[in-house]
């Protein structure tokens, strides 16, 4: 393996690295956002109707079990996409996100105390308003926890797409491997890990900022 002093290579390829990083973020984050948007109504349905839960939760378990490379490979078969379409990576990532979050959202909504929802109804909230301002905020800590796992996993799984010709930092990994370029390989891995941890930390901070009551409760050791 050939690991030179990295600066010359980095300097020469800064533009490519930046482009690959941008592409990686687009490939990884968009599906997580879409997955989140889909999971909230699905999770709500699962928390509300036993039948919906009976279908959605086992289905999520099955989808989880399918290895990433297999799922990426099967998207063109299922959706008719071209063999190198960003969707081939994004659809599986969205599926994994949904599979993870549907359960989190449903558990979190089901855990909202009955007397709280009863009180909200009795005070005169309309159903949608009540869901958005009472139940959903109370589910936020659990949803953020699930989202953090989903986003970090998505960042690392996106690299697998390079095996079927889809870009992002995974392409620097395969390229570095084929060219026996250790610098390229290590830079790509480091960028993925660091970006994943930074996004994770950001989510943690945002989650804390929007749920001030959680810390207040912990401070007293009281339970809700």
């Amino acid at each position: 393996m050939n690991i030179d002093w990295p600066w010359p290579w980095l300097e020469r390829n800064l533009d490519d690295i930046a482009e690959a990083t941008g592409e990686h973020l687009f490939l990884a984050l968009l599906p997580v956002l879409v997955g989140l948007a889909v999971s909230v109504p699905l999770g709500w349905a699962a928390s509300r109707w036993r039948v919906a839960r009976g279908i959605l939760v086992p289905l999520a378990g099955v989808l989880y079990t399918i290895p990433s490379l297999a799922l990426i490979t099967l998207v063109p078969l299922a959706l008719g996409t071209r063999i190198i379409d960003p969707l081939n990576v994004q659809v599986p990532l969205a599926i994994y996100t949904i599979a993870l979050l549907v359960r989190s959202v449903s558990d979190a909504l089901a855990a909202v105390p009955r007397e709280v929802t009863a009180a909200a109804t009795a005070l005169g909230y309309r159903p949608v308003h009540q869901f958005l301002t009472v139940e959903l905020p109370l589910a936020v800590p659990v949803i953020v926890a699930g989202l953090r796992v989903a986003v970090v996993s998505a960042m690392s799984l996106t690299a697998v797409g390079a095996l079927v010709g889809i870009g992002g930092l995974g392409q620097l990994i395969t390229e570095g491997f084929l060219r026996n370029n250790g610098v390229e390989l290590v830079v790509a891995i480091a960028l993925i890990v660091v970006l994943a941890l930074v996004i994770d930390a950001l989510l943690l901070l945002v989650g804390r900022a929007v749920t001030p009551w959680v810390r207040a409760q912990r401070g007293t050791g009281a339970s809700a």
């Binding site: 105390p113 007397e115 709280v116 009863a118 009180a119 909200a120 009795a122 009472v134 905020p137 109370l138 749920t211 009551w213 409760q217 809700a224």
Partner: peptide, 10 residues
Amino acid sequence: IQHAGLFPHR
């Protein structure tokens, strides 16, 4: 109601 049913997030 019993247990008050206060909103824990407010």
